[in-house]
């Protein structure tokens, strides 16, 4: 039975599924790493993703355009992160508490909006499945084609975001400034560069990415919205940022490792191996804890992560 898992066709489909499963987590994690490099710990990813998932679903349902849904999800993520930024950067409310509050808001608001919008309907209507977008020529490649190039738009976007974020953080002046905020915000402040403005920017990017990650769950794969459909993916994105040592390429590796596990457990259920399915479903969360234990040295954590920057009193 286990040998079935090594059939080439199955290997290809597991790898392709792994990329698909990685997409929402990777999007959120790449946004989060920019915010965390700028010293802000946004624990509100789960709630932001839920809001993005609902908004994407609802706008797509209303307009019939998946692209409109994706744009709206990105905008809603930006809006939520603006609220988060106002609270933690401007008002300096505890970052962990604010993040939790955003999660509760996302869960409550998205569930309420769903119930209010479809109060009279017996079931929540489904929207059309978002088609995959096979890339011309590349999709025809053997093995690599079906794995890499027959994915959906957001998966390509997530994969392209890896080099883009890496380039931005480590090869541009703005990236350098952001990383400096995470390590020594005063250095930037004394040069007359605004710390809050940059943190707002970093958080906005994180919000857009989390909103898109949520959109992938509803519009991109399930074709509907279900309350709490993120199922901890926002939290897994936080784990992946840590497991990826705050570096985009390693974050990609960590996200793929997790999603490969997830794709494999789906296959294992498929070949009818007699394992309780609950155990398989709990696997990603158990592995998250194990990953955190094994990655004890915590290399790469920004020194000022989670610490609000306050100027000395000048008056």
């Amino acid at each position: 039975m286990l040998a079935d898992l090594l059939e080439p066709a199955i290997v290809i489909s597991v790898l392709a599924a792994a990329l698909r499963i990685a997409t929402p987590i990777l999007l959120a994690a790449l946004g989060e790493v920019v915010a965390e490099r700028a010293g802000v710990y946004n624990m509100g990813l789960e709630g932001t993703m839920l809001i993005g998932a609902f908004v994407a679903y609802f706008v797509t349902f209303q307009t019939g355009l998946a692209s409109a849904g994706l744009l709206a999800a990105a905008a809603s993520g930006a809006l939520v992160s603006l609220l988060f930024a106002f609270m933690v950067v401007t008002l300096q409310v505890e970052q962990i508490v604010t993040g939790l509050a955003i999660n509760l808001l996302g869960a409550g608001l998205s569930t309420y909006a769903l119930r209010a919008a479809f109060a009279d309907a017996a079931t929540v209507p489904a929207i059309g499945f978002m088609p995959s977008l096979p890339l011309p020529w590349l999709a025809g490649l053997p093995v690599l084609g079906p794995i890499l190039f027959e994915q959906k738009l957001l998966t390509y976007l997530a994969l392209l975001a890896v080099p883009a974020v890496a380039w931005f953080l480590f090869r541009t002046r703005m990236g350098l400034e952001l990383r400096c905020i995470g390590e020594n915000p005063k250095a930037l402040d004394t040069k007359g560069l605004s710390v809050p403005a940059r943190q707002y920017g970093a958080l906005l990017f994180g919000g857009v990415m989390a909103g898109l990650g949520g959109a992938f769950l509803s519009v991109g794969s399930a074709a509907r919205f279900v309350p709490d459909m993120t199922n901890g993916r926002g939290w897994l994105a936080l784990v992946i940022v840590i497991a990826g040592a705050w570096r985009p390429w390693r974050i990609l590796a960590a996200a793929l490792a997790f999603s490969l596990l997830d794709a494999l457990q789906l296959q294992i259920q498929g070949v009818g191996l007699k394992l309780p399915f609950q155990l398989l479903l709990a696997l990603p969360y158990i592995c998250a804890i194990l990953a955190m234990i094994l990655l004890r040295p915590r290399a790469g954590v920004p020194a000022m992560l989670g610490v609000a920057y306050r100027r000395e009193d000048v008056a």
């Binding site: 609270m87 509050a101 509760l104 808001l105 869960a107 409550g108 608001l109 309420y112 209010a116």
Partner: peptide, 12 residues
């Protein structure tokens, strides 16, 4: 379900 949204709004 409004109540769960309201609870989070009270907190924020």
């Amino acid at each position: 379900a409004l109540i769960y949204a309201l609870q989070a709004i009270v907190l924020l």
